[in-house]
């Protein structure tokens, strides 16, 4: 009795679904990614908020951004200069003339009053925020936005 050898079947892998998945992922990232001009941004944990408003910052009138970084334990130097503008830390005494200069420059360029956006870390204090607002008032900057992270529910408090 002759045994017939079964012919080895050729298996082919269909690549089409894999390419479909890869294209889907690619389209997702193409759509979701925003190429933005890189600004000197300080990494902060902004206060969480459910009621802060979106789209208050106008692209044609970008505000001066002041970042308030809280003092870390042991970082005495940074604690004295908690106000970061364009990636450079400043003390309150340095912030005041800087804001006056920036406000004047923006007025000369845009013929409009300058505005300020304060990005304060959630752990920074009311005092720091008050002094930043006072510095803006002294520089005759009267329009101020306080930044927050938009969330659906604030964690930690009820």
């Amino acid at each position: 009795m002759m045994l017939k050898r079964a012919k080895a079947k050729k298996t082919e892998m269909d690549m089409t679904p894999m390419i479909d998945c890869v294209f889907l992922l690619l389209i997702f990232f193409l759509v979701a990614t925003q190429i933005k001009e890189s600004q000197a941004r300080v990494r902060l944990a902004l206060p969480e908020s459910t009621e802060a408003l979106l789209d208050l910052v106008k692209k044609e009138k970008l505000p001066i951004t002041i970042n308030i970084v809280p003092k870390e334990p042991g970082e005495e130097g940074i604690g004295l200069k908690p106000y970061w503008v364009l990636g450079v830390p400043h003390s309150l005494e340095e912030l005041r003339p800087l804001l006056r200069l920036k406000a004047q420059q923006m007025f000369e360029v845009n013929q409009e009053a300058a505005s300020v956006r304060i990005r304060a870390d959630r752990a920074s204090t009311l005092r720091q925020l008050q002094m930043a607002l006072k510095a803006c008032q002294n520089a005759k900057i009267l329009h101020v936005l306080i930044a927050a992270e938009k969330v659906r529910q604030v964690r930690g408090y009820r």
């Binding site: 979701a32 208050l56 008050q130 607002l133 008032q137 101020v144 930044a147 927050a148």
Partner: peptide, 28 residues
């Protein structure tokens, strides 16, 4: 795909409070 995976950053949505100035000084 690898480029976008590496380049993309997940950032929280930032919003703002439009506040007045402290009440002992000029404000809008």
């Amino acid at each position: 795909l690898v480029f976008f995976l590496v380049a993309a950053q997940v950032r929280p949505i930032e919003a703002d409070y439009d506040t007045n100035m402290p009440t002992d000084g000029p404000g809008p």
